[in-house]
């Protein structure tokens, strides 16, 4: 009887051999038909990327440049195809962003370039590409990662957008400060949202869901930080823009509510270890607008204090808030025209955009800092659920 001698893992060279005619099947099973919520949920993070890279290593090893090119082209085009088909599904976009980045890091880590080899083990150094320099393809993969990132941001914004005004401005959670309506009747406050109303909790739960999914997919921590910063920017910008257009949002009590909501967002950052990602700083215009709603607005000293406090707001924004400011009761006066003129005079030498509203379409430029993996390619085993039995571990 033939004896099956299992090979020891240290005999494997961390490559996957495949036939040229199986390339289409490879990209179909690994990319086009792979469901992030299906079999992929149990995979080690980045496994599709490692598998593609190990196939690439073999094509490189046998010195077949055509095979290398077609594998890279098919993989890239397949990723683009699946993102075109399911581009509004956050999980799909996040999954392929994480894997595209991992693939890019593998191309660097095993390029043979000393700059990327500092953290390699001796075994990993044995696995560098043999014959081809793929620096130009790295640029293409990087461009692809940027596109996927931008798609991810749009996807998240579409989900967050309907929640922001309701959760940050309209829903009142602080008991007793909602004040009195202009008619003199006390407003009904409730800690329970009306059906269909988004609350701050809705926003926080959604942010947690995004964060959890990205972590599960093995997204680089540095990339998660950039995503969260962008999310906070959009929350701050949409909230501020709404405030700048609504008189009913410009009161002392609204200022209080906004400051409370911002503190909850900061608490969320603290809880996730994201206090240094730059997200809090993106809320500064909103924070200052909320403070402006609460400070005194009568004397020259008040004007000086406002001008030094509101460094992140434009003159147009400060003036608008002051014009819209609505006193909570009949004892408080509206902001006088003279006071607003004082503010404008003090700020006339500022060099700034005359724009009133924040740019909600702005996306911070993204970077993908090199993040090598400690995973040993020769230890990777492919689960049968991926239907890649035609690949041979070498």
């Amino acid at each position: 009887h033939p004896v099956n001698i299992p090979r020891r893992e240290k005999d494997f060279q961390g490559m996957l051999e495949y036939k040229k005619e199986d390339e289409l099947k490879l990209v179909k099973n690994l990319i086009l038909e792979l469901k992030p919520r299906g079999v992929a949920v149990n995979l080690i993070p980045g496994l599709p990327a490692y598998i593609l890279f190990m196939c690439l290593r073999h094509a490189d090893y046998v010195n077949d440049d055509q095979k290398v090119r077609t594998l890279l082209t098919s993989s890239i085009n397949s990723i683009k195809k699946i993102l075109k088909k399911r581009g509004d599904d956050f999980e799909t976009v996040s999954f392929w962003l994480a894997n595209t980045c991992r693939f890019l890091h593998c191309l660097k880590q095993y390029s043979g370039d000393e700059a990327f080899m500092k953290h390699n083990t001796p075994k990993q150094n044995e696995h560098t590409l043999s014959n081809f320099d793929l620096a130009e393809y790295r640029q293409v993969i990087s461009d692809l990662a940027i596109q996927i990132y931008q798609q991810l941001i749009k996807c998240m914004e579409n989900i967050l957008q309907p929640m922001i005004v309701s959760g940050m401005l309209e829903h009142e959670t602080i008991q007793g400060v909602s004040g009195v309506k202009p008619t003199g009747l006390r407003k009904r406050t409730s800690s329970i949202a009306d059906e269909g109303t988004y609350t701050l909790d809705s926003i926080l739960r959604q942010l947690s869901a995004f964060h959890s999914t990205m972590c599960q997919h093995g997204t680089d921590p540095e990339l998660i930080k950039q995503v969260v910063k962008q999310q906070f920017y959009i929350i701050g910008a949409v909230t501020l823009n709404n405030l700048l257009l609504r008189k009913d949002m410009c009161s002392w009590s609204k200022g209080m509510q906004i400051r409370y909501n911002v503190s909850q967002l900061e608490e969320w950052l603290r809880d996730k270890g994201l206090m240094t990602c730059g997200a809090k700083e993106t809320l500064e215009p909103l924070i200052q607008a909320a403070q402006l709603l609460q400070v005194k607005k009568k004397t020259d000293e008040d004007a000086e204090a406002i001008c030094s406090m509101c460094q992140a707001l434009t003159t147009a924004q400060i003036v608008k808030v002051l014009n819209l400011y609505t006193p909570v009761n009949e004892f408080e006066e509206r902001v006088s025209v003279a006071f607003i003129r004082t503010i404008q005079t003090r700020l006339r030498d500022r060099c700034e955009s005359p724009q009133l509203l924040m740019d909600t379409k702005m996306i911070y430029p993204v970077t993908f800092p090199f993040s090598p993996s400690s995973l040993a390619l020769e230890t990777i085993q492919i689960p049968s659920s991926l239907n890649l039995g035609f690949l041979t571990r070498v």
């Binding site: 014959n131 393809y137 293409v140």
Partner: peptide
């Protein structure tokens, strides 16, 4: 691979060029 032998740089199309190649391949196939 002998350490002294340099790797061959593979020229790559841009992302847009790859997409155009892909579109024309899909149009050609039945």
């Amino acid at each position: 691979r002998p350490p002294s032998r340099p790797r061959i740089l593979l020229k790559a199309p841009t992302l847009a060029e790859m997409e155009e190649m892909n579109i024309s391949e899909e149009e050609e196939s039945p």
